[in-house]
Design a protein around this nucleic acid. Structure first.
Length: 155
DNA sequence: GCCAACGTTGGC
DNA sequence: GCCAACGTTGGC
């Protein structure tokens, strides 16, 4: 079982959107970065837990937890010329982009802001701190525990 | 809204 | 296969 951090702009898709449909799976689509794609296609598996991170806002933060419920499969939004992330180079026969499905687990009692993450020396190795642009990032078990504690969650 | 970081594209 | 130009991300 692995841990991850998935970024999303809340104006596009937020924890409230996920929470409002707790019994439904949501497609994590639109990822158009090869390194992130490789994680989604090859490494992210059902049962993995995800830090749900709100980016590109005044106070970026980990705000909740999601669970992966379907492993990587072709991102069909890349095939749709009307879709925002349409990619003419990707096809049903030879898909380039992949997505997984996730389900709501919980909101953190207290959001863990990027500011708090950056100020914790134990989290200095997180890609979020080191290379902030990657939208799908692995998280170690230790980092997960620390962020849970910072978020006010029980062990 | 600015701009640094960095990923991608394309000419050569 | 190099690298300059360009586009995007995302913190501030």
């Amino acid at each position: 079982m692995n841990y991850w951090l998935f970024k999303t702009e809340p104006g596009c898709f937020s924890i409230d959107d996920l929470k409002s449909r707790p019994d439904m799976t949501e497609h994590w689509d639109g990822v158009r970065n090869f390194q992130a794609r490789n994680f989604l296609r090859d490494t992210v598996k059902p049962g993995d837990l995800v830090l749900f991170y709100h980016s590109n806002i005044a106070e970026p933060a980990v705000v909740g937890i999601a669970e992966v419920v379907r492993e990587g499969y072709p991102d069909f939004t890349a095939f749709d010329p009307q879709a925002e992330h349409f990619d003419p180079k990707s096809s049903v026969e030879k898909p380039i982009w992949y997505m997984v499905d996730v389900q709501y687990v919980k909101e953190l009692k207290r959001p863990v802001t990027l500011e708090r993450i950056k100020s914790n020396p134990l989290l200095s190795e997180m890609p979020l701190v080191r290379r902030s642009r990657l939208s799908i990032q692995p998280v170690t078990a230790e980092q997960w525990q620390i962020i849970m504690a910072m978020g006010g969650e029980e062990r």
